[in-house]
């Protein structure tokens, strides 16, 4: 369990985190979502003791990270795929980390195999692609078989196979009862990976919800196709829906769900040729929610 309480962080006059509070539960993949500059990386760095909060606290298992004596056994994290010395081999990089936590070399070999880097164990990290370095970072996070896993933008640089692999890996880790928190600025990626989502903007928590609830909440309308649309429209209006006609003789009903429309049409013996619930894409929803929290924006985006 990760608990963040009223976290505030200032860098000079810049307020990076503004009284941010949330909890991350075990057993689900939690997404930490927000535009660039929203405070995601800062939050993860404070949780992991790399940055000091101006006020508030972040606890993992009721302890500050820097109070844990062998943290790799309890928490695994990847904050930066490039955070490895390019002159060391993959094995050497992990062995140095493992040795500091009393983890043996056989475990280093095992996690390198686990992330698919077995064939480049003795290759220098400087020659790795970004995707390979991401995998190496994840191998480091898994070294101590930890109960809590935090990943900052883990799919950056991964190809389609790698992205699918990391999705499966994270879901499997959560299914084992681990606490998994990953950050991203890409809603499309989160939609396929996480169960629960925390949306932040300008250092504040904008929304905390399950991915399913988020999808349901932003369902917009139902597109109805029927050869007797003229007869169906007043029936739907009678059910409390707002109905408008499309150019191709379809109906768009707002305020009534698809099963209700189907039942009403069947009761009136009106044939239905198409019934399509339409929702805003999660990407649209996310952009709508964070529109006021985007720190940097091109001139063309402002006028769009």
């Amino acid at each position: 369990m990760i608990v963040v309480k009223e976290l505030t962080k200032r860098y000079g006059s810049t307020l990076a985190l503004d009284n941010l509070s949330f909890e991350v539960r075990p057993g689900v993949v939690t997404g930490f979502l927000g535009p660039n500059g929203a405070g995601k990386s800062t939050t993860l760095r404070i949780i992991l003791g790399l940055h000091e909060a101006t006020s508030g606290e972040a606890l993992i298992g009721n302890r500050r990270y820097d109070r844990i004596r062998r943290p790799l056994h309890e928490v695994g994290a990847v904050l930066d795929a490039d955070a490895a010395h390019p002159g060391r081999t993959a094995f050497q990089h992990l062995a140095c980390l493992a040795r500091s936590n009393g983890i043996g070399k056989s475990r280093v070999t095992a996690v390198l195999e686990q992330v698919g880097l077995a064939s480049v164990v003795h290759k220098r990290v400087g020659g790795f692609s970004l995707g390979m370095r991401q995998r190496l970072g994840i191998a480091g996070a898994l070294l101590g078989d930890p109960a809590v896993i935090l990943l900052d933008e883990p799919v950056n640089g991964l190809d389609a196979v790698g992205i699918r692999w990391i999705r499966g890996t994270l879901r499997a880790l959560a299914a084992e009862g681990r606490t998994v928190l990953l950050s991203s600025h890409l809603m499309s990626e989160m939609a396929l990976t996480v169960d629960h989502v925390l949306i932040v903007g300008r250092g504040r928590l904008l929304e905390e919800t399950s991915m399913t609830a988020m999808r349901d909440r932003f369902e917009r309308d139902v597109l109805v196709r029927s050869p007797r649309a003229d007869e169906l429209a007043p029936i739907l209006t009678g059910l409390g829906a707002t109905v408008t006609r499309t150019e191709d003789d379809g109906l768009v009903a707002v305020g009534v769900d698809a099963p209700t429309i189907g039942d009403a049409a069947a009761a009136a013996s009106i044939p239905i040729h198409g019934l399509t619930p339409r929702s805003a894409s999660l990407e649209d929803v996310y952009l709508e929610m964070t529109s006021d929290a985007v720190e940097y924006r091109a001139a063309t985006e402002r006028t769009a």
Binding site: E74, G102, G177, R178
Partner: peptide, 22 residues
Amino acid sequence: MTTLQTRPDTTETAAAAVPSVS
């Protein structure tokens, strides 16, 4: 690439399972 080898025990209590060190 290998598939993830999952371990049998769940670990929200892993912190307690980690041997304490001086």
